[in-house]
Each structure stands twice: as structure tokens, then as C-alpha cells.
Amino acid sequence: MAGPPNKRQKRAEYKNSREKGTTTELPKKKFYRQRAHANVFSDHDLEYPISPAHMKWAPYYAPYAEPTKSIVKGTVESQGVKRPNDEGEKEAQTTAIEEEDSRKLTQDVEVADIGCGFGGLLVALAPKLPNTLLLGMEIRTQVTEYVQERIKALRSQSADEKLYQNAACLRANSMKFLPNFFKKHQLSKIFLCFPDPHFKARKHKARIVSTTLNSEYAYVVRPGGIIYTITDVEDLHLWMVEHFDKHPSFERVAEAEQEADECVEVMRTETEEGQKVTRNNGQKFVALFRRLEDPPW
């Protein structure tokens, strides 16, 4: 539902002003709030690559992109006669951008935060895992935009230390299109933090964890990789444990090992939902699952 017009207008004004200024200020959440639930079965107006090979990662992780090959090509072209019509020039420009965008990364994204919300985990993990590329995936446009703005601001704030270059966020319906973004066994960690509990039995297929969907996580995560889950709803926790336990590709990580993992603490304290649960003196249920080798065939 669209908000009242003045609210919408204020949002537009705010975002416009951010776009113009080269602000290093963090974005304000109040201009990006959105209903907490999205229908994962509907088509939306999603953008997703045809296959992982088609994904243009360079705009998200610019410092990690391979240098353009077209630099050489570009100089050759500029030596030639300048085309008289603007259109040709524009075309050349767009192809240049296109080429720049489709540069390959020197390393692959390895950590995905599925349903990253306002990006608390992403932003906290980025400095802790400085040599790993992290990707937040969020289905709500407004929230995605917030995280992107947040990362942009953090990047420019820490321009000297070059922090947060390894974190990015994009809009996606991960339940449908995860394999469009990641190759087989590409990821080492997936985070599922405070997912929508979908209380009604009728809605259980919409839960982020299910027997059939776990197979897709097993596909994108390499053997030895870890799926992190946390929730404040005990029922959902039990559901997630049950479904990962049932899946032959996963085993639960023992508690001692779980508590020794630095990501677990971050997940407990740095996610927005985690902080809210703390404020409300709520419970937090954590469970980690390791991806096992596939049986020989």
C-alpha cells in the first residue's frame, strides 16, 4: 500500500537530496520503511541474471573488478575520426559502461545474507571478513535501497581505510532465484537471520527453510560451508532444525563450535532484529548447519 501523498513526497525529496549531494551521512531509516512481509510466490518486477555467468558484479564490488580490457580498445577508437552524430557517441558510451559493468571479479562472492533487512549483519561482518565478498539479498525495494545507501555512505566515510568495499546489497527473491546468482558450491556461508515466521500452516511453503528449498542451499554452498540461522520464534527454530536435520546434505554444528564462531555473536547482537529482540527482552534461538559432501554416486 502506498503511503499518504505527503509521506511519499517527503521520501522522494529526501532521496533526491541524497542523490545530488555527495553526502557521507548515513541514510535515515524512516524514509525507507516497508511492510515486513513480501509474497515470495508472486512475480514482482524482479531483475535477475539469466545465469550466474550473466551476473554483472563489477558495479557492486568495483575495487575487486578486473581492469577493463577496453582501455586499450578505447584509445584506439579515440584516435579514429570522431563520429559526427551524438547518437553514435552515446552508443559508444553505453557500450563502454556495459563493458565496465561486465568486468569479471578477481574473486567470487562467498557469503550471502538472505533477507538482509536493513543490513546490520552485513555492515558488522564486512570489517571482520575483509578478504571475503559479502552480499545482502533483500526482497523489499525500499529496504534494499536503504542498505545500498548505507554501504555507500560507509564506504565514503572510511575512504582512507577502504572499508566496506567487500559488502553489497541487491534486490532479489532468493527463494526463487538463488541459483541465478551463484554457481554450484560458490558460497561458504549463508545467513538466515530472523526470517518471516509465517505462522499459518497454510503458509509454511513460504518459509525460507523447507525440505525442498534446503536442496538449493546445498547446491550453492560448498561442502564444509555453514548455514547460520537465528530467530526469536521457538516454533520456527524447531522447524528449521527439523528440516535441516532431515536433509541428508546437512548436519547440525555442535554447540561448542557454534559459540566459538565469531559470526554467531555478530548475528546475535548486530542485526536490527537482534537488537530489537534484546530491547524487548526476547529469546534468541541459534542453529548452525554444516554442508556435507555429497555421497558418491
Partner: peptide
């Protein structure tokens, strides 16, 4: 066939945090 703009799931309204 998917119909364009069927549901944008993109309401500006929100009560979540």
C-alpha cells in the same frame, strides 16, 4: 506468461523496523 507490473510488492508503507 508473466504480466508486467502485476504486483510490485513495493508498498512504501511499513510498520517494521
Amino acid at each position: 506468461r508473466k504480466r508486467a507490473g502485476e504486483e510490485r510488492g513495493d508498498g512504501g508503507d511499513g510498520d517494521d523496523a
